[in-house]
Design a protein around this nucleic acid. Sequence first.
DNA 1: AAAAGCCCCTGGATGC
DNA 2: TGCATCCAGGGGCTTT
Length: 271
Amino acid sequence: MPELPEVEVTRLSFANNIAGAVVESVRVGKTLRWPLGVAPMHLVGQHVAAVRRRGKYLLLDLDQGLLLIHLGMSGSLSFFRQNSTPGPHDHFDLQTSSGLLRLNDPRRFGAVVYAPSEDSSQAQKLLGKLGLEPLSSEFAVDLFYAGLKRRSSTIKQVLLGGQVVVGVGNIYACETLFLAGIRPTRVASRITKQQAGRLHAAIRDVLTRAVQKGGSTLRDFSNAKGESGYFQLEAMVYGREGLACKVCDHPVRLLRQGQRSTYWCAHCQKA
DNA sequence: AAAAGCCCCTGGATGC
DNA sequence: TGCATCCAGGGGCTTT
């Protein structure tokens, strides 16, 4: 479910509410991708200083260390002002003095992991190889182009891989390649500087607008206040196999790349 | 070092 | 209605 815009919208929806709050109790349900990595008691009494985002990870800064939260494929966070009883897929609760932060995740590909610091091995194992933040000023065309230059796999897989640029998931990878007119099977290192420029602009543009629109919902995304997004940025190709391309009327194609579906238009994406 | 596969898990949609 | 099969927006881990 969540790509960068959904994670960022989630962060914005509760960061100000939880900042400065004190952890009162922690409830761990079924184990997620990994165990929490610390005794829940250790978190009690600590302040939540801030909520940051790195790629698709949310970072909750505590007095001592931080929590790394990932939503996986099916995770979502909710923030409750009042008490609420957990449902069958609510696998982590952080009760604070200002409200309850709850992770719901049916598939349990998500994670909540404690790390003693951002430099710790626990944190670096997850964050250490992440690429450029597409919505920050560090996302320069030159750096992006240089990153693509040293990759020999296809551009679609490089976008998904997160080692050159973070936060672009399957939907946005398909959509940005369409907007840039680049075929998804193109070897990344053979992309020209001009094409890299178009792709760079498409990534910034689409992700920025998706955050502004409240996150896309092809299915069921909602932020931590329970408000759903609308997918007002309509997909040009994603999920549209066999339908007419919105630009040229040729049928949208489907292909498999690394066990993921890629949707694209062979007529519009010739670069 | 990088790339390619393999998995983790549940629920919803589709087909018989 | 019931059951089997396929698919899903992610990414760490293991093997090449």
